[in-house]
């Protein structure tokens, strides 16, 4: 039977009130026994219970432990610039300003100082973070993949004008976005970079690089424009996060054989690079029942150890690059990074 021909059925069922049952406290007693069972399991059971558990411990000790955020998580918008050339991806097309429901984006287009003609770049870009609804429409409609949704949610401040964020503070390198949303960026990187090259040709002089970004910047995400984020906290968050792995596995989507393939590729890459970094430890201290989740800790640990790579950052285990990539893309990325590191000549 095709789906279109299916006919649902159902009856009207009166709920059972059990009005005639004699009650002398046995209902409450039965309920209390359930409560005590849960209490016992919570006290002595395994921590970091799975999604299918209804008993156990589910607490995440924030801020020492953090839940990993999925790639699609959207908090506040940020703007991207290319690491290599320093050029901003934004061409000031005003699509995000037009679609923004609370109208909090304010863009001024850059003009060629010689001719006065508009140039595909933004001179000023202001987002009012305090009114932003986090709807994500700006990121959805941007034709140049310049504006994306950041994952940082610890933005509380007592200085209200600070929440009108200007272009300098909005800019992040593409490498930062790659660490927080690798699969999403992978899908659009080629077309975004191609469009960027076209736009660079139409930008005279230093327009498009004039908002404080460093050309060739490979920013550790912890160091970019967030004053209270210790880089060490990121690395140390990985270790306890390993114990949190089963809860923190949100965002991971690798099956077991892909994980094994990935590990073998990374082992091969690391031996190519001369064995730097910790050996991949499959017997990492995580309970055996969760086979997929240990990848978060293991992937993050070699990244932290490999010199010159992007630090995992305070966003925790999901922030490690490549954990959501297929094997060949991961291998490609590793090759590119290796080449860049050789270029930088560490």
């Amino acid at each position: 039977m095709t789906l279109a021909n299916r006919q649902g059925t159902g009856v009207v069922v009166p709920v059972e009130r059990n009005d005639q049952r004699f009650r002398a406290g046995q209902g409450t007693a039965a309920g209390l026994s359930i409560v005590f069972r849960k209490f016992r399991k919570a006290l002595f059971g395994k921590p970091n219970s799975d999604r299918s558990d209804t008993e156990g411990q589910f607490n995440v000790q924030y801020p020492e432990e953090r839940l990993a955020l999925p790639e699609a998580y959207r908090n506040m918008p940020i703007l991207l610039f290319d690491d290599a050339t320093g050029h901003e991806l934004c061409t000031s097309c005003f699509q995000c300003e037009r679609v923004c429901p609370p109208q909090v984006i304010h863009i001024t287009q850059a003009k060629d100082p010689a001719t006065g003609k508009p140039v595909p770049s933004a001179a000023e870009f202001i987002i009012e973070y305090d009114t932003c609804m986090s709807c994500g429409y700006c990121a959805e409609v941007c034709p140049f993949d310049a504006i994306k949704m950041d994952h940082d949610y610890e933005l509380s401040t007592s200085n209200h004008p600070e929440l009108d964020v200007n272009y300098n503070r909005l800019l992040r390198p593409v490498s930062y976005y790659e660490t927080i949303a690798p699969t999403l960026w992978n899908d659009v990187r080629e077309s975004a970079m191609k469009k960027l090259q076209n736009n660079i040709k139409r930008r005279p002089g230093a327009i498009g690089v004039d908002h404080g970004q460093k050309v060739g910047a490979k920013a550790a995400p912890a160091a970019v424009a967030r004053p209270a984020e210790p880089a060490g906290g990121g690395a140390s968050a990985v270790a306890p996060a390993a114990k949190r792995a089963s809860v923190a596995a949100i965002g991971k989507s690798m099956s077991e054989e892909r994980l094994a393939k990935l590990q073998s590729i990374r082992a091969a890459n690391q031996s190519k690079r001369g064995g730097a970094g910790a050996p991949i430890d499959t017997a990492h201290a995580v309970e055996a029942d969760v086979a997929v989740q240990p990848s978060t800790a293991q992937v993050a640990a070699p990244d932290a150890a490999t010199p010159g790579s992007v630090a995992p950052g305070a966003t925790g285990p999901v922030a490690a690059v490549g954990t959501n990539m297929s094997e060949e893309k991961r291998a490609k990325l590793e090759a590119i990074r290796a080449a860049k590191r050789a270029q930088e000549g560490e």
């Binding site: 006919q7 649902g8 009856v11 009166p14 709920v15």
Partner: peptide
Amino acid sequence: PYAVYDRFDFDIPVGT
């Protein structure tokens, strides 16, 4: 029925 709900079997509980 809207949005493919006519393809599912489910009961409607009512009170008395």
